[in-house]
Design a protein around this nucleic acid. Structure first.
Lengths: 137, 137
DNA sequence: GTTCCTGCAAAAGCTTTGCAGAAGA
DNA sequence: TCTTCTGCAAAGCTTTTGCAGGAAC
């Protein structure tokens, strides 16, 4: 589902974020590439299009998006953060060999944290790791 | 359940790991302090007892323990790795405020990864985040 | 004009690597 | 003796911070 620049701008404005060119492009990238990208992947891809883009801006922007819940930061890779814009219920499988991340459906609502009655639960994450089919061969 | 030095040595030997003083102490610490410690916590605590201990050794040892499945490395904290020696089914709650980690019971066996039939699943992790009761006040 | 945003450079923090000396089999 | 282990120092990476110039309102 390709979103127009106008729609993306609106999305940002609704969150009280000024829709700068960089921010629009980063959000657009996240919406078009649901691959749980790293900062590096985002930077490398957009750097071609926006030669002046800096990694600092990518970091700033992603932290901002995280604060207003436009993205979820995944701490499932040992080395670097991954960013996910999909909000539907799903778990992640990360391959120990190639670090590729695969989504799989799982019903988070059926996960109850017994003994967590007094906790304010904001996010639920499920992740598996192991070897993916491509690396198994 | 306090383990004796002899028992810990045996545990290491069974994994073909030479039971050096440092390794025994680190494993003992992990067994006595089930608080998902960071490398720093382990180092600071044991440094008092073993003044010559270096952080490199703590890193080396934990990586070694991870390889032979004596510990599980948790990638649930943004900044640094956490180490868990408990193998029973449980999920983790990490507080966004104080980074404290709480265990809670959850049946991992009931978590199926649909569409992951060709995947070799080695570990299943469930983690929630939010605000813990102590920080809510 | 004033506030916010961007991006360079530098710093900070966690983790790994190289290597020499020490310890153990 | 020969292999393995330890620990210092340095390097490598990801991420954050300080700050000056630029853009937007």
């Amino acid at each position: 589902m390709k979103e127009s620049i106008k729609e993306i701008s609106k999305l940002l404005s609704e969150k009280d974020i000024r829709p700068s060119h960089q921010r629009i492009k980063i959000l657009e990238y996240l919406m078009d590439n649901r691959i749980h990208p790293t900062v590096d992947m985002i930077y490398n891809e957009l750097h071609e299009e926006i030669p002046t883009l800096s990694k600092t801006t990518v970091y700033n922007t992603l932290n901002l998006f995280d604060e207003v819940d436009l993205v979820t930061t995944l701490s499932i890779d040992d080395n670097e953060a991954r960013y996910d814009i999909v909000t539907e219920n799903h778990g992640h499988f990360i391959c120990k060999e190639c670090s590729e991340i695969y989504d799989f459906p799982i019903d988070m609502n059926s996960l109850f944290g017994n003994q967590l009655n007094d906790f304010n639960i904001q996010e639920k994450h499920v992740y598996f790791n192991g070897i993916c089919p491509r690396c198994s061969k």
